[in-house]
Each structure stands twice: as structure tokens, then as C-alpha cells.
Computed example of a mutant assay.
Amino acid sequence: MTETTVHEDLTVGRVADLVGVSVRTLHHWDGIGLVRPGGRSWSGCRLYDADDVARIHRVLVYRELGLALAQIGRILDDPSADPREHLQRQRTLLQERIRRLEKTARAVDEMIERTDMDHSSTRLSPEEQARIFGTDWDPAYQEEARERWGGTEAWKQSAARTRDWDAAQWQEIKDETDAVEAALADAFGRGVPPGGEEANALAERHRATIARHYDCTPAMQVVLARMYTEDPRFAAHYDERAEGLAAWLRRVIEQSARAQGVDPETATWQ
């Protein structure tokens, strides 16, 4: 990402072209106080100066790193941090992400090599899934899931659908899940209320990622959402993106299910 040098105040359209985001995004960031243009033209149009554009670039880097907008705003508005400290923080986070991506790339390369040698699809073992899904993956999770859900139709569907998935397909699922979780964290940071149109749409996106594995009904999604607050591992996973996200997501899923005729209080795995 190349930072743009600005020598004059720029309109929102010009800034959007320079930094590669939409005008609508810049208007949203202005509305939530994340990046507010420092000036106005004689006709009242927003004008961005060099400092405003520099702040946009910092937002873009933090967003690329997966931080929610509300968290980015708190970081940038920290009175104790100077621009150099922000850059150092971003560099540290980028280096960590690069290490994770390089590890994932090596795992994918290994799977490609194995597939070429075998001339057939190779199913990922739990250990190989861990290389893609991160160090918090524990092979014991699969056995735990088998004990809990092994007799269900959902388990049979998941086993059948994922049997021949290769590393690229697992990575696609991981990327899709990350994108949904980033959107959830962003909505949470913006104060999107459970039960609204946007929240319900996000609940459906979340359910669609589960449905890649098995047919997930709104009632089943509610059952899963209970674990997001009751199981410390799930709670930590979501709250790592934004503190309080797990509880908010559970409410979002429950309200979405209610709108579809499911009582969250009595929902069962069906």
C-alpha cells in the first residue's frame, strides 16, 4: 500500500480515487467520526488535507489487519500515541500477519506437492487443517465434535461434503469465515442493533458459512450461538476481534431466528 502525498485540499471524490475506497465509505467514516475532513469549500463540500489523507491510510492498514472500525478509532485517537508509534504498531502487526501468511503458504505448497505426487485429491488431516486455520486449532476439537454430534444428520452431511476438500478449498472456507467475522465486528463497532435489517442479513451470512458444511437451520444456529457465550473458547475467539462481540452475535442470531418463527428460548438441534 503506497501512501499518497497531498499538497492541496482535496474533494471526497478525488480522495476516493487516490486511496482506492468508495465515496460512500468516506462518507460513512466521516459520519462515525473515524476520518473527518478538516475543511470545507465555499460551497460546503468536504475537503481533505494531507493529515486527513494520512489518517485514511492508517485506517486502511489497520482494517487490512482485521481490526474493527471502532477499535481503529480508539487506537488512532489515543492521546498518548504519536504518528511514529502508530507506524511502529502497524509494522509489528504486519510482520506478524506476514509470518502467519508465510506459514499458510508453506502448508498449501506442501499440499499441492502431495496432490501432484498422488495424482488425486488429498484429504486434510486435523494437523494439516491446523496449519491453515491457525495455532489455536486443536485436533482434539474434531474428536470432541464427533462425540457431541456424531450421531446427527449434520455430522454425516459435513463428513460427506468435506471428505475430498483440498487445501485450497479449506483456505477458501477460512477466508470466507474471516470476512464474515470482520463484517460482524464492524457492525458491532458501529452499534448495529440486533433484530434490524442489517443485523439479520449478517446472521444469514454467518449461517451460510456453516451451511457450507451441513444444512443449518435457524434453530440449529441458535443452539450453536449459545456456545459462543457459554464456551470460553468460542467467547475468546469472537471477543478477540472485539470485546463483547460473542454476546452481541448471540443476540443477533436469536433475533434473526425469532423473525423466522423460531423461539430462541426453546430452540433445539433440528
Rank of each mutant, 00 (worst) to 15 (best):
A235C: 05
F188K: 06
L34H: 09
A130I: 01
R241A: 09
D109W: 05
L124K: 02
V108K: 03
T209D: 09
Q169L: 10
A50C: 10
P193M: 03
W155C: 02
Y214S: 10
R190P: 05
G195L: 01
A105W: 10
P79R: 08
L69S: 12
G73P: 00
S158E: 02
R190I: 00
S80M: 12
L87T: 14
R63M: 08
Y214C: 14
D30S: 13
D78V: 13
G39W: 01
M227P: 01
P139Q: 10
L224N: 02
S158D: 00
A201V: 04
A130S: 09
A236R: 07
V12T: 15
V15R: 12
R55Q: 13
Q157N: 04
Q157L: 04
R24D: 13
Q157H: 04
R131Q: 12
K156Y: 02
T152I: 04
Q157F: 03
H27A: 10
A159H: 06
L65G: 08
A225C: 04
R97A: 13
H27Y: 10
T217Y: 05
C216K: 00
L87F: 13
E144H: 06
V53K: 03
I132E: 05
A145I: 04
P194M: 06
E265A: 15
W248I: 02
R84D: 15
R205E: 11
T5F: 13
T4M: 13
A199C: 01
G151K: 08
T115P: 05
E144A: 11
W170K: 07
R233V: 05
D175P: 05
R55A: 12
E102S: 12
C45Y: 12
W42N: 08
A145Y: 03
G44D: 04
T2S: 11
A140Q: 06
T5S: 12
R212N: 07
V21G: 15
D263H: 13
R233W: 01
Q129P: 01
E8I: 13
F133M: 09
R46L: 04
R84E: 15
W155E: 06
F234N: 02
R46D: 04
W149P: 00
R190D: 15
R58F: 14
G150P: 05
V21I: 15
T4V: 14
T11P: 00
